[in-house]
């Protein structure tokens, strides 16, 4: 079966900066694919090449079997793109905005209300876009990208600059879009977002893809220790270090944290000592993967 997206050896440089430096990946139909990396990693440039907004210096890309560059009117109705929340017609209401975008795709204007409903903006239909909050504007922007029912949706940092509550609301919307059978490509610099939403992520830095795979596989591949923490003071620090399976232990005055590659042994030992007050167990995250790959702390 043909891939929904097939990118092969993409390169793009601006002067001396190699924004995209040999990026290859394929996205399958119905997949939720994430490109994850800090600002300046080259995510957006890579995405723009695939969408057909920029021409790659080198490499080839096909989207739904078609070349996106130069501007391809056969491809455009089949993809939906959310670029930035502010890309709206000025002074129109949320409904008028959707109606106008719908007409650009030859979709009947009545589709607008269904889209407002889908992103939970029915109550804001008559509100001008300038009056919407950041989260509402993002949801409207996504609705505009979906109004013509595209097979493939690109979302460029949809949750950037949103508060945590608005981010979680948006995640729900994004999951629904994906459940409806669409392929989604998302860029983000939030590790937790990629972990929570994506079937597969490509971790990008310095214009290159460092690693690619399902988030859980990437994390497990690390062989990083689990961290088990309990309330500070339930156990002396030296006793904690001596627990079976414990690699390292530390007490910061709030929590006593034990690092281990054998969490069941440590938890059993803590339970035997009745020392499970406030217990939390954390495995490695994509942040640890990034740290492992680049040797530096992840900064979003």
């Amino acid at each position: 079966m043909a891939h929904t997206i097939n990118a092969d050896g993409l390169r793009k440089r601006y002067g001396d900066v190699r924004a995209v430096d040999g990026v290859s990946f394929a996205v399958e139909e119905g997949e939720f694919f994430g490109i994850l990396g800090p600002n300046g990693a080259g995510k957006t440039t890579a995405l723009e090449i695939i969408e057909g907004l920029r021409e790659a210096d080198e490499g080839t890309v096909t989207v739904l079997g078609l070349p996106p560059w130069p501007r391809n009117p056969k491809l455009l109705p089949r993809i939906g793109v959310q670029l930035q929340a502010s890309a709206f017609f000025e002074r129109l209401t949320a409904r008028e905005q959707l109606q106008t975008f719908a007409s650009l795709y030859g979709v009947p204007a009545r589709k607008a209300d269904a889209m407002l409903e889908a992103v939970g903006l029915t109550g804001k239909a008559g509100e001008r876009v300038e009056k919407l909050s950041g989260g509402q504007a993002q949801r409207l922007s996504i609705a505009c990208a979906l109004v013509h029912d595209p097979e493939l949706v690109f979302l460029d940092e949809p949750t950037a600059a949103l508060d945590p509550q608005a981010r979680r609301n948006l995640w729900d919307v994004l999951r629904q879009i994906n459940t409806a059978g669409r392929t989604i490509v998302l860029t983000t610099h939030y590790m937790d977002e990629a972990e929570s939403l994506c079937d597969r992520v490509a971790i990008m830095d310095g214009g290159k893809i460092l690693r690619m795979g399902p988030p859980a596989t990437l994390v497990r591949g690390l062989d990083a220790p689990a961290r088990i923490s309990v309330a500070s003071g339930v156990l002396p620090l030296d006793d904690a270090r001596a627990l079976p399976g414990a690699d390292e232990a530390a007490d910061d005055g709030v929590s006593l944290t034990v690092e281990t590659r054998d969490p069941s042994a440590v938890v059993a030992a803590l339970a035997a000592r009745d020392a499970l007050t406030g217990v939390q167990i954390r495995g490695a995250t994509l942040e640890d993967v990034f740290l492992d790959l680049t040797g530096r702390e992840y900064r979003a």
Partner: peptide, 18 residues
């Protein structure tokens, strides 16, 4: 200028309307 700086031109370019 407004359409360019706010990304509206890019957005319109990605719609099939000529």
């Amino acid at each position: 200028v407004t359409w360019r700086t706010k990304g509206m031109l890019r957005r319109l370019r990605l719609s099939p309307a000529p």
